[in-house]
């Protein structure tokens, strides 16, 4: 039974490391300040306690910098918390930073392999899916060309085709993907909706309030790294919209 539990989770980014990101600066900082000057930091998530269970489709909304993407990456186990405990039970399928993580000198076909392995698939399973992934990309012979020769649209097509071909219980989505041209976007949207239907637990981060209302059965509003509201999508979207309108 897949679930995600965050228990008093705080995730902190240090801001001042840029002041001593070389050995020289680090030594000078130690000599001048005695290493006592506290570093500035920002808590992207502050004492967040949240549980998402099987069957739930959680929409996460909030302004830029509210901590939405950090929340998703923390759930995926990519960002370690400063304090608190994150428990994620189930096979996670995360779709974010799609066009990153390619081996530029490797061909598209080889990269299907890498991405699949990175996402936890076994080589045999990827071999079985290779033809289907290749067909979905619609990039034909380019699959045998190093990806450094690809256009950005082709890269996203490839990335989306691989990432969306691998199944998981928990689906983490950071913004609904706008991949490639109009035809491919339609195709990608259809596949995303199929993935959402099949997933046993969904967390969707989006600025598209309509999508959250349409797809999700629960929503949270993140503000300054804290959960400001947790409830039905209709209520949370209404409260968020009202606040945004009052600010404007």
């Amino acid at each position: 039974m897949p679930f995600i539990r965050l228990d008093h989770v705080t995730v902190r980014y240090d801001l001042d490391y840029s002041g001593w990101n070389t050995l020289k600066d680090f030594v000078l900082h130690r000599l001048r300040e005695g290493g006592k000057k506290p570093l500035r930091h920002i808590d992207a998530l502050r004492d967040v306690t949240l549980e998402v269970s099987e069957g739930e489709r959680l929409g996460v909304l909030g302004r830029n910098g509210a901590g939405k993407s950090t929340l998703l990456r923390t759930m995926a186990g990519i960002y370690p918390p400063l304090s608190g405990v994150v428990t994620t039970v189930g096979r996670v399928r995360a779709l974010f930073d799609l066009s990153l993580g390619f081996e530029p000198d490797a061909t598209g076909r080889e990269n299907i392999f890498f991405r699949g392995l990175l996402l936890g698939e076994k080589p045999e399973a990827i071999r079985k899916k290779m033809a289907e992934i290749a067909e979905f990309t619609e990039i034909g012979d380019f699959l045998d060309v190093p990806v450094k020769c690809y256009s950005s649209g082709m890269l996203v097509r490839l990335a989306f085709a691989i990432s969306s071909a691998i199944e998981g219980d928990i689906l983490l989505l950071d913004e609904v993907v706008a991949a490639g041209d109009l035809h491919f976007q339609e195709k990608a949207k259809k596949r995303l909706l199929e993935m959402i239907d099949r997933s046993r637990l969904l967390v969707l981060v989006s600025h598209d309030l309509g999508a959250i209302r349409e797809i999700c059965n629960r929503a949270i509003w993140l503000d300054g790294g804290r959960v400001r509201m947790d409830g039905s999508p209709a209520d949370v979207v209404a409260a968020y919209t009202a606040m945004e309108s009052s600010v404007v």
């Binding site: 370690p80 400063l82 405990v85 994150v86 996670v92």
Partner: peptide, 16 residues
């Protein structure tokens, strides 16, 4: 991601 169960507590039992 091959996670059947991922629990992480900061900072000493970090997954690395």
């Amino acid at each position: 991601m091959p996670i059947s169960e991922l629990t992480h507590e900061p900072p000493k039992a970090a997954p690395t």
